[in-house]
């Protein structure tokens, strides 16, 4: 039961975090104003922008000169809001009875950790710098966890704790990232497009930007790897050869297809050998002319569409025997690897 309820709460909060609906400006301003009041400040003036990039480049009128985004974690308001959140969490944690601890740990595993991973993978790429304690404070991961402590684990909150949690929850549900200065709070609109795979685990869109905001700011990503747009539009062996980033290079090659890449790049076949454990298929070793060789193999399992995927692995340049190169990838000798019984 805990697992199903936790999954429902996780989906609900993930949906809010990765939403592309327009923000609810009145609700966001009310919740953020409420948080300012709780730390003894008057509600700020609100300055709305179309994207986090715009927020990070804008110094809003009325902002103190010391409140530059580079010093975000030292601004007074985020510092005090972090303390408010820490006090809430510590206060609730103290109210968790010993017998509820296993459920609480289960919720941490099922909610806090996966939501944190999704936010890191899908939303942080819009921020630069991406790290900062203030961004973690706004993350739905801890809010969802405490929401679930109340709704699933039956932990009792005081009325004051409920009010504080409700403000954080309303702010997180109503808008995107926000930057609270002393007299003005910059709030970003949500993205207009956000494409992920595996249920929000990482950014992925083979057909266009994976993350895009109304002001045109955008990034492309394949299976969670941020890539330049040429990887989507025109991956050529020449561009691949010039690309220094190994993840980007791999994404571009996979976009092109390993066999097409090997052919178009004119890689020289060094040797081929039957693939142990994968009857009827070969391991093929290619010379790239560079500091690595490429071992091309065929997947042991069928894809969902019934095809078999070819994939390449880079191996050290001194290998001449494909079986020895395949063994090396698992830290085994050619002799050991040749005894592979089955590969799926």
């Amino acid at each position: 039961m805990v697992r199903h309820e936790a999954a429902a709460i996780r989906e609900q909060w993930l949906g809010r975090a990765l939403s592309t609906r327009p923000t609810d400006r009145p609700a966001a301003e009310a919740a953020i104003s409420g948080l300012y009041r709780l730390i003894g400040l008057s509600p700020p003036r609100f300055h709305w922008v179309a994207s986090p990039a715009a927020a990070l480049e804008t110094m809003p009128p009325g902002a103190a000169h010391s409140e530059t985004v580079q010093r975000l974690d030292a601004w007074p308001v985020p510092t005090r809001l972090r303390a408010l959140r820490a006090e809430l969490c510590a206060g609730v944690d103290l109210r968790i009875e010993r017998e509820r601890q296993p459920v609480v740990q289960e919720l941490h595993r099922l909610l806090w950790l996966p939501l944190g991973r999704s936010i890191d993978a899908c939303l942080l790429p819009a921020l630069n710098p991406r790290t900062g304690r203030w961004y973690e404070t706004q993350s739905v991961s801890w809010i969802a966890h405490y929401d679930a402590l109340r709704r699933v684990a039956g932990v009792s909150f005081t009325a004051a704790q409920l009010r504080v949690l409700a403000l954080w929850a309303r702010a997180a549900a109503a808008c995107h990232w926000w930057w609270p200065r002393q007299h003005v709070c910059v709030v970003s609109e949500r993205p207009v497009a956000l494409h992920t795979e595996e249920g929000g685990a990482r950014l992925h869109n083979p057909d266009g930007p994976a993350l895009r905001y109304a002001d045109g700011w955008r990034i492309h990503a394949l299976h969670g790897t941020r890539v330049p747009d040429w990887v989507l539009t025109d991956p050529t062996p020449e561009r691949i050869a010039d690309e220094p980033n190994v993840e980007v290079r791999r994404s571009a090659i996979e976009r092109l297809g390993w066999s097409a890449y090997v052919e178009r790049a004119g890689l020289r076949l060094v040797a081929s050998a039957p693939d142990p454990g994968n009857p009827g298929f070969e391991l093929r070793l290619y010379d790239t002319g560079g500091s690595s060789r490429v071992l091309l193999a065929v997947n042991g399992s069928l894809e969902r569409d019934g095809s078999r995927r070819q994939y390449g692995l880079t191996v050290p340049p001194y290998f001449g025997d494909p079986v020895a190169a395949a063994g090396w990838t698992y830290g085994l000798s050619a002799d050991q690897y040749s005894r592979l019984l089955r590969r799926t």
Partner: peptide, 15 residues
């Protein structure tokens, strides 16, 4: 198949 020897599953191997 239940086997006693070396087997691989994608990026993992069982030794």
């Amino acid at each position: 198949p239940v086997l006693e020897g070396l087997q691989a599953q994608g990026d993992l191997i069982v030794i």
